[in-house]
Amino acid sequence: MEITRLHHVGHVVRDLPAALDLYRRLGFAVPAPAYPAMPPREGAEPEPFGAANTHADFAYDFLELATVVPADGRAPAGARIVPLQAPPDVLPTLLERIHATAAKLTECLNRFEGLHILMFSSADIDATAARLTTAEVRHGGVNTVRRPAGAGIETVRYLEIEGEGPGVAAEGRVGVVADLDPAIQATRRIDHPNGAVGLVDATICTPDTELDAVRARYERYLSRTPRTAGPALVFQLGDASLTLVPASGLDTLFPGERPPASPALVACTVAVHDLDATKNLVQDGGFALHRTPRGDVFVPASAALGAAIAFRQASRHPHDLAGRARVPHTSSEVD
Rank of each mutant, 00 (worst) to 15 (best):
V145R: 13
S331A: 13
N143T: 07
D335P: 15
E171V: 04
A202F: 09
E164A: 13
P36M: 09
Q283K: 13
A170G: 01
Q283I: 03
D296P: 15
R80T: 07
H116Q: 02
P318Y: 01
L281T: 04
Y158C: 09
G10V: 00
L115H: 04
G150T: 02
R14A: 05
P40E: 09
G163I: 04
G150C: 09
S302N: 10
T67D: 14
Y35S: 04
A59E: 12
H290K: 14
R146W: 03
P263K: 06
T278D: 07
P40G: 11
R74V: 12
P260W: 02
A307K: 06
L63S: 05
L16Q: 02
V177S: 02
L22G: 00
L265S: 03
A308W: 05
F49G: 01
L22H: 01
R324D: 11
H7F: 05
V156W: 05
A213Q: 04
L180K: 02
T252A: 10
V30H: 02
P293L: 08
G323Q: 03
G140K: 10
A71L: 12
A267G: 04
D276A: 15
V282E: 10
T106R: 15
L109W: 02
V197R: 15
G238I: 00
H329L: 15
T144K: 14
I153A: 06
V176A: 08
T128M: 07
T269L: 15
D296G: 14
A178C: 05
A183Q: 07
E210Q: 05
H192G: 14
Y221I: 00
T278G: 13
A86F: 04
F298A: 09
V334R: 14
L237W: 03
N194D: 13
T206R: 08
N194A: 12
M38E: 03
R157H: 01
F112K: 10
F235E: 04
N53E: 09
L305P: 02
V142Y: 11
E160H: 05
L281A: 12
D320N: 07
G285E: 02
R111L: 13
E154P: 01
A240F: 08
M119E: 08
R25W: 00
G27F: 09
Q236D: 13
V174D: 05
L211W: 00
K279F: 10
T206N: 10
R173G: 11
F311A: 11
P48Y: 09
A151S: 03
A102N: 04
A216W: 03
R215S: 11
